[in-house]
Design a protein around this nucleic acid. Structure first.
Lengths: 126, 126
DNA sequence: CTGTATCCGCCGCGATACTG
DNA sequence: CAGTATCGCGGCGGATACAG
């Protein structure tokens, strides 16, 4: 495992890195967990919005669209008034939940050790 | 696990979310993995820089500083010319490597399933 | 209720140049 | 080699208003 070792390198398009990027910047993992935590594995937009403190309607929609495009979730529109849209994990999404849950559990199990961590002083604005 | 269930909620400061945020935006996980992958568990700045394709010197330094402040890694300066600085995982960092490796491995094992995923078309700028 | 569109400030991050 | 300082752009993401 020397400096130049290919195995040691994080190629820009390597699989692990792709996974990591799925966690970055967005709410993907939290949406995944929320869906997974529900008995029927599905949730309406409003529920997701309320389950993710801090997310804006815009970001939720954006995230859901991306996840749908990636094949992680499915979107089912019930034609009715008022509208009712259900999001559900696809098989791929279901598999992806694994690592997410692992992380989630690890966080819970190590909550105390995390106290020392500075989660990022991303100066909350307003 | 109803909509309002506390267990279903992602409180802004909950442990799992703190962990997730460690993955967001930054190179933390990749630095962690790189250090972990090395025989002696340590690496010089230059090695890290070369092991992480795409990272800039600025981001590397910034990431390392934050990780040091969080207690994930230690920084050891060898007074010499030219300078030589070694970064090493602390105990906390060592423990944190677990979930990182899990993710890393999952990515490798599911590389094919990931082909359908759009890792985020963050338009690379020149 | 679900979703779209627009405006816009903030800051992440690369590029570059300089110090020890 | 390791690190800091500065500049500048792009886009993330919130706030708000509007539509079916």
């Amino acid at each position: 495992m020397q400096p130049g070792s290919p195995d040691d390198q994080w190629r820009e398009d390597c699989a692990p890195r792709r996974v990591l990027e799925l966690f970055a910047t967005k709410w993907t993992s939290m949406v995944l967990h929320t869906l997974h935590a529900r008995h029927d594995g599905a949730a309406r937009a409003g529920v997701l919005l309320r389950s993710l403190p801090g997310i804006s309607k815009k970001m939720l929609t954006q995230t859901l669209r991306e996840m749908e495009a990636s094949g992680l979730i499915s979107r089912l529109v019930h034609s009715a008034i008022p509208p009712m849209v259900e999001y559900r994990l696809t098989d791929l999404g279901q598999r992806f939940v694994e690592p997410v849950e692992l992380l989630y559990a690890w966080g819970r199990d190590n909550a105390d050790a995390l106290d020392g961590l500075v989660p990022r002083a991303r100066s909350r604005r307003a």
